[in-house]
Computed example of a mutant assay.
Amino acid sequence: MDPQAGTNRTAVTEFILLGLVENEKLQSVVFVLFLFAYLVTVGGNLSILAAILVEPKLHTPMYFFLGNLSVLDFGCITVTVPAMLGRLLSHKCRVSYEACLSQLFFFHLLAGMDCFLLTAMAYDRFLAICRPLTYSTRMSQTVQWTLVAVSWACAFTNALTHTIALSTLNFCGPNEVNHFYCDLPQLFQLSCSSTQLNELLLFAACFIMAGVAMVLIITSYIHVAAAVLQIQSVEGKKKAFSTCGSHLTVVCLFYGTGIFNYMRLGSVEASDKDKGVGIFNTVINPMLNPLIYSIRSPDVQGTLWQVFVRR
């Protein structure tokens, strides 16, 4: 190890992303699969966004938040997958130090926004089902935009904090990242300076964000379940559980993979499990979200049918 490396901010100017597979034939298969997943995700999320924009019936708080979620899913997969596809085409696995930090910042910005937005959506369902008489005033357009703005501010602060904290670490080699995109746990393993404070910061941020969000979501749905059980109409119960079921499915997928990936203290050796979780975070979840909501929402289905078939 170069003794001068420790005195510099970093001796590494670029990282080598090892990707998902090393075999060239398998890389071709991975390219086709991820390109297909990217196109499906972009098409699905933009279709839902278009349906919400053109159909006045969908200009409600629930679909306002769903439209924002579609934008986030589109952004999340765009931050990671196109760059990976480009590396597979060019057979160049190197990414600059600055580009790696930029990708990390935008990924955590969008993922953090996802966390806060899912909490706002749970609050919206709570008000709609448990406080229907005051719902229009408690979830006015001003409140909706305020919730989104506060979520962006909190997510930006979180992402910027982790990026700045990572930039204080020294990287003096090796520079091989056992992943297909730049993320904190994998970069911690390459640092030649102590990452204990960074890991504690990541764990604390995840515990606060995920912990508080999950408590609020669970509390909201306890009240929702109690209110739904009091509904006499079977059709009313079915409709309430249908709208809540979509959100709960997305919440379970998002928090399940996120907790496994980030709430681990200590530099755990990177493995194929981390890559699998990364695929869920960046590809599968954004691809499934529009499918989950469109399948469970007759309003979205009807609007998509009108926009893309009848017209």
Rank of each mutant, 00 (worst) to 15 (best):
A226P: 00
W152G: 08
D73V: 01
F34P: 00
P56L: 00
P132F: 06
S167K: 14
T257A: 15
T163G: 03
A122I: 05
T219E: 09
F203N: 03
L35I: 02
S294Q: 01
A159V: 08
F36H: 07
L89W: 11
S271C: 05
N281F: 05
G258V: 01
L88P: 01
A155E: 03
V32D: 01
K57V: 09
L127E: 11
D2W: 06
I52T: 09
L190Y: 05
N45I: 07
T219G: 13
K237Q: 14
R138A: 12
A226C: 06
L39S: 14
I292A: 08
G211I: 04
F74T: 15
G67D: 07
F156G: 05
M263L: 14
E22F: 05
E235N: 12
P82W: 04
T161N: 12
S220E: 00
F203W: 14
I222Y: 07
L88S: 02
G276P: 01
T7M: 09
F64M: 13
Y221I: 02
C93Q: 13
G256Q: 09
C192E: 05
C93R: 14
K239E: 15
A149H: 04
I279Y: 04
N158P: 00
K57E: 14
A155C: 06
E98G: 00
V268K: 08
A226S: 13
G266E: 10
A120W: 03
T119W: 08
H162E: 13
K92V: 11
G276T: 09
L58S: 04
Q196Y: 09
A213M: 01
V234W: 13
F34Q: 07
G211V: 04
F74N: 08
I292K: 11
C100V: 10
F116C: 12
G258W: 04
R138N: 11
H91Y: 08
S28Q: 13
L216S: 08
F260S: 11
N158V: 08
S70G: 15
R138L: 15
G86W: 10
L133Q: 14
F74Q: 06
R310C: 06
G258Q: 08
T243A: 12
D299C: 01
E176M: 05
C76W: 01
F107H: 10
F207E: 11
T134L: 07
I295W: 11
G75L: 14
S151V: 06
M84R: 14
G302E: 15
F171L: 10
